[in-house]
Design a protein around this nucleic acid. Structure first.
Length: 565
DNA sequence: ATGGAGACTTAGAATGGCATGG
DNA sequence: CCATGCCATTCTAAGTCTCCAT
């Protein structure tokens, strides 16, 4: 499978043969490595009991808690500044799980969370954070060195011929689960992982990592068809967590490259697929029409596939196939447009998707039909799921799934926007602004949002104050009736600076709730950016930081200025 | 077909560290 | 020189999609 991608790459028109490391060693289907050796995961430190002068109070009386109960109480106390701890669901889940950790006596005493006073523990925690901030240079350096030692020992593995950085070599520490959005399990206790819970994956003939003293691993496995080094089952959702390689590794890089090659393959056949689903909108089969409408959304709006989710296990979020009637409002007429679909739903990470989209009449009519005789909570696409959709897609093109459309549309949009917005005659700052604007167009398409930075309003106000001051100064200078030639230049400069500030303000305001990083990292073929930098004579470091350059090493290595996505 | 386990990518928030300018 | 704000890194949750048993 992989060698076919390489073949495709080699045959690409105008593509230079600078593949080197990226084309060595192809394995038979499914095999990910021949040799894998590592030191196992790094475990978080043991719980340190509270000092005697820091006490927990119940109903006004000091209570010395057992070690297990105390540890969980500390988890809660540490979060007291956070809004989470005021939420009913969070508090109930926490209290229920906390009581499980208590001794019999503690359980019979502590029956009401509202009567618990974590104040001293909370204060101690804040003091610790403060002390950490105020550490001396020497202390900070010592800490840094100690951390580096841990990275040196546990942070790397040997995979075939290469020493590779591990992405997450640390076992996740215990704590209170913080889901996103209205998560029904928020506040539950995320338990401490023991070596006895951990499966190690490595070569038979490698140096098998030793479990921490007095412990043993759950299992030693030698499975070279997977890429993970260690895994354990987490207790909140019962899902498996993995220790895997860093994004800059060869293994991840090749996978990334393959992803973009599949998206480019879609480019060559997307017109055919589009005319096919336009035909399918008229199908006699309701299921086929639903599939066509879903595909229309996925293609046009870059919606996610939308797998079904188990109710009550996670926050109530949806993607395309799991949209419900309540998430869509149809408008025959809206703001001068016909056939407008108004979307309002929570997507991945409970990020709201709100959009008013004019659609073609056939889609509009179908939607109306799908919604007939349904309750708000009913599925919009009751004859469709992601499995059926992906089966259909893979029959149209090898390797095609719903998410490929997001990659394809993101990358093609970046390429188009860069061509439209940027110009070789611009100065570097202007070029970078154009690049960011192209990137922003993609982020908006993919609905990549962020919470406005906490300091946003303030930093915006500071900027606005600067602008106002500059305006006032300008007005004053201009109202001066006496013409002073020396002032002319100063006024001009002042006007330029005002413009700059205003652009900056607009830029920041536009970016208030937009996150550019996710698309840059996961959706935009880096070769587009590398080629753009070469064409525009912009240093690559201006758009990719060190770790991004490492992650995209494969693209930097092989891309010439004439690359076309 | 259906459902669940498993493996892997994608995601925003929190944290950490460093540059910059008052 | 230090506070402050910004950017990079870390963290781990939340998706997608495949495979396999029933």
């Amino acid at each position: 499978k992989y060698s076919s991608v390489i073949q495709l790459q080699k045959n690409q028109r105008g593509q230079r043969r600078r593949l080197r490391r990226w084309e060595e060693e192809k394995y038979e289907d499914g095999v990910k490595w021949r040799f894998l050796e590592h030191k196992g995961p790094y475990f978080p430190p043991e719980y340190q009991p509270l000092p005697d002068n820091v006490q927990f109070y119940y109903n006004g009386k000091a209570v010395k808690l057992s070690l297990a109960a105390e540890e969980v109480a500390v988890f809660f106390a540490q979060m007291l500044d956070h809004e989470y701890t005021t939420k009913k669901v969070f508090r109930e889940n926490f209290f229920k799980d906390w009581r499980k950790e208590m001794t019999h006596d503690e359980r019979s005493l502590i029956k009401d969370l509202d009567k618990c006073d974590f104040g001293e523990i909370h204060a101690m925690h804040k003091a610790k954070v403060e002390a950490r901030k105020n550490m001396s240079k020497e202390e900070k350096l010592a800490l840094k060195e100690a951390n580096q030692k841990i990275i040196d020992e546990f942070g790397y593995c040997l995979l075939d011929h290469h020493k590779e950085r591990i992405g997450n070599f640390k076992i996740e520490p215990p704590g209170l689960f913080r889901g996103r959005g209205e998560h029904p399990k928020q506040g539950m206790l995320k338990k401490r992982i023991q070596p006895e819970d951990v499966i190690i994956n490595c070569s038979k003939n490698s140096c098998i990592p030793a479990a921490p003293p007095g412990h043993h691993w759950k299992e030693i496995r030698c499975d070279n068809t997977v890429t993970w080094l260690a895994s354990w089952t987490e207790n909140i959702q019962g899902s498996i967590k993995y220790i895997m390689l860093n994004a800059n590794s060869k293994l991840k890089g090749e996978k990334d490259w393959e992803k973009y090659e599949i998206a480019r393959k879609l480019k060559s056949c997307v017109e055919g697929i589009r005319s096919q689903y336009h035909q399918d909108l008229k199908s006699k089969q309701m299921g086929t029409r639903q599939r066509a409408v879903a595909l229309y959304f996925i293609d046009k709006l870059a919606l996610r596939a939308g797998n079904e989710k188990e109710e009550g296990e996670t926050a109530d979020t949806v993607g395309c196939c799991s949209l419900r009637v309540e998430h869509i409002t149809l408008h025959e007429q809206l703001d001068g447009n016909e056939c407008v679909v108004e979307f309002d739903f929570l997507g991945k990470d409970s990020i709201r998707y709100y959009n008013k989209v004019p659609v073609i009449r056939k889609v509009f009519k179908n939607l109306k039909l799908f919604m007939e005789n349904k309750e708000p909570g009913d599925d919009m696409f009751d004859r469709l799921n992601t499995n059926m959709l992906n089966k259909h897609l893979s029959s149209l093109m090898m390797g095609l799934t719903a998410k490929v459309f997001r990659t394809y549309n993101a990358s093609i949009t970046l390429q188009q926007q860069l061509r439209e917005l940027s110009n070789k005659s611009e100065n570097q700052a202007e070029k970078l602004l154009s690049y960011n604007r192209a990137n922003r167009a993609v982020a908006i398409l993919c609905n990549h949002q962020r919470a406005p930075p906490k300091t946003f309003e303030q930093s915006m106000a500071t900027l606005q104050a600067k602008i106002d001051a500059r305006k006032e100064q300008l007005a004053l200078a201009k109202s001066d009736r006496v013409y002073i030639p020396r002032k002319k230049n100063a006024v001009q400069r002042s006007e330029e600076q005002l413009l700059k500030l205003e652009v900056q303000a607009t830029d920041r305001e536009e970016n208030k709730q937009i996150a550019l990083g996710t698309s840059k990292l996961n959706y935009l073929d880096p070769r587009i950016s590398v080629a753009w930098c070469k064409n525009m004579e912009v240093p690559l470091e201006k758009i990719y930081n060190k770790s991004q350059r490492d992650k995209f090493a494969w693209a930097i290595d092989m891309t010439e200025a004439d690359f076309e996505f």
